[in-house]
Design a protein around this nucleic acid. Structure first.
Lengths: 342, 342
DNA sequence: GCACCTTGCGATAACGTTATCCCGAGAATA
DNA sequence: TATTCTCGGGATAACGTTATCGCAAGGTGC
């Protein structure tokens, strides 16, 4: 099958890359010496270094990282299992940049919001012997990770914690975010505020809904018809909006619990969006171009990504350190929609 | 340095993963037999398969892909060097899905729109011996890839072609897109149409600006003050808009050449955006939520990604096939902004 | 009853690196 | 001059797989 090209000189063969041995032969030195030159070992004479370098250039030699990793025992790569690769993912970007600073490559895989895919992706990373895994969990149960963690694989979760397995985590301050949003709306004259967000079986949905309920209760307001947590689908959003804003004592303001919900709400409201005050959890590109521009609770993606890498490196350095959960502050960005009066 | 835990049984050691040899010893068979079981070789007796499987489970053995790759010669991974990992990237997502169907893992790296980073990322992929590289080029010159392509590395570019090196490419039909946008605006009563887009040293900027000029000329309209190609920065966008719309014979419609330009234009126009007709090249999330909703020329990201993988696989299968450039149709999606009358 | 295949499994050599030895040659010391 | 010490560099053994052999049993042909 493989076509074999006749080679006159010690030139390149199609489909077959030169190895250290080829370089060594071309330079007329031992294999080990080439390795030394490649790794900048100072115990090689200048003339030999030159010879080897020249051979490397003429052969276009590039070391095989797989072999290096196998031999060295570390891969210089960390895996990042994120929920979605298609949409904007500022945290992944921050992870990538922080990793690069630490001389690490990021292998990003999408879990497509499916538990099955998450597991496949993560186990695939383990088979690649990555030096650590950063995961934006979908599963509620990460038992399948137990042997890996046991074997010393550093695992850090972000946005949501892992379930059933001890792992570091970096989370946004959901409670503070909802609280800030609520108070902001109250300060602008609202006392009937509704919440629409994700399903409560999802960690963030649960935390945000719970915080919202606490805010309403603390504010002395009624809860009924004001809290709508569930799947993000147009029909549910529509009925939630109808319940909250078309009843006998309608809400005048709305807090949305995540980007997907926000988008669906805006789609449904259409031109009516300008008539109710909205604070949205999570910022997104172009939120400032909407009319009215969207007031948001922005998560600090850069800090989240950076912290995730820091936690990963810390655990890699000391596998026995206690499991840590870092909470990253959020920030309210007023743009107009949250400052509308009732 | 390495702490050595005393082991009584053949159990797990912290930080040291079990290998095939460990499995073999536990199962009481030869190393080679474990390999056979792992690879579903049918020439192993049922009882031995069971013994080995049991040992694999008790040890939590996971094969080391690096060693597999090294031995097999293929990595089962393709690299994708994209311009940006932070923003939405539907093509990357399509590549990921198509690759998964072909049992391939995607290693995505961001070039951050910098030539230097592109080169680093791509060379890093080569050192990892990926089975192919999909690249969204930043550089105009890809000479550095010549040795890799020579050595048989399949390379496919998308969005823009590679420079100075023969590689397959999948491109959007920029000319048709601009033509469609132009005719759409003409049909809605505009005959003074302006274009603001990317710098013409960038392939897509060049193609789109050229097509626009051709459209204007064919339509018998004047060109001066109507074509603005250059860096995407607020100041330039502002002056371009002023020139086009505040002159003695102002334009009544606008075609924007890429997402970044579109966003800057909308930011600058603010509430005035509703007063001029706009068709934007490239669709983006939430374009339908703007007021007026944005009429766009949408690229077919799914097809682009899928085609890129197809070209890659085809080249991997037959390295001698002629270099091919595929053009993917674009589609005008009317949403309101492009249907405004003068 | 012996040659001849299958079948089932084990020893061993790669894959392309790096790390551990080890040795020869010169410099420094007695 | 003989001896030790450094220093530069070469064999060679891993790393964890898979592929090529080869070798025993056991079944079938004459």
């Amino acid at each position: 099958m493989t076509e074999r090209t006749v080679e006159g000189t010690a030139g390149r063969r199609r489909g077959k890359r030169p190895t250290m041995l080829d370089v060594a032969r071309t330079a007329g030195v031992a294999l080990r010496t080439v390795s030394r030159v490649v790794n900048d070992d100072p115990t090689v004479g200048q003339d030999l270094v030159k010879r080897v370098r020249a051979a490397i250039v003429t052969l276009d030699y590039e070391p095989d990282e797989r072999a290096q990793q196998l031999r060295r025992g570390v891969s210089g790569t960390i895996g990042a299992a994120v929920r979605n690769l298609a949409d904007a993912h500022p945290v992944l970007s921050a992870i990538d940049q922080a990793a690069r600073k630490a001389k690490l490559t990021v292998l990003a895989m999408s879990t497509e919001d499916e538990e099955q895919r998450e597991r496949e992706a993560v186990m695939s990373m383990c088979r690649k012997r990555v030096d650590g895994i950063i995961i934006e969990p979908i599963s509620a149960n990460h038992q399948y990770l137990a042997p890996e963690i046991e074997a010393g694989m550093p695992v850090v979760a972000f946005d949501r914690p892992t379930g059933g397995v001890p792992a570091d985590a970096v989370l946004s301050d959901n409670a503070a975010g909802i609280g800030t949003a609520f108070r902001h709306l109250v300060q602008h004259g609202h006392n009937r505020i509704a919440y629409i967000g994700d399903h409560e079986r999802i960690f963030t949905g649960r935390e945000r809904a719970a915080s919202f309920r606490a805010c309403v209760t603390a504010n002395g307001g009624p809860l009924e018809g004001m809290v709508h947590a569930g799947a993000v689908e147009p029909a549910r959003i529509a009925s939630a909006l109808t319940t909250a804003f078309d009843g006998p004592t309608p809400a005048t303001a709305l807090i949305t619990g995540n980007v997907a919900t926000t988008v669906e709400v805006l789609r449904y409201l259409g031109a009516d969006a300008g008539r109710i005050a909205i604070v949205a959890f999570d910022d997104f590109l172009l939120a400032d171009l909407l009319r009215p521009a969207l007031t948001v609770i922005a998560q600090n993606s850069a800090t989240i990504g950076r912290t995730a890498i820091e936690l990963l490196l810390a655990r890699a350095a000391d596998p026995t350190r206690p499991v840590q959960s870092v909470t990253v502050p959020v920030e309210l960005i007023p743009r107009g929609s949250g400052e509308l009066r009732p």
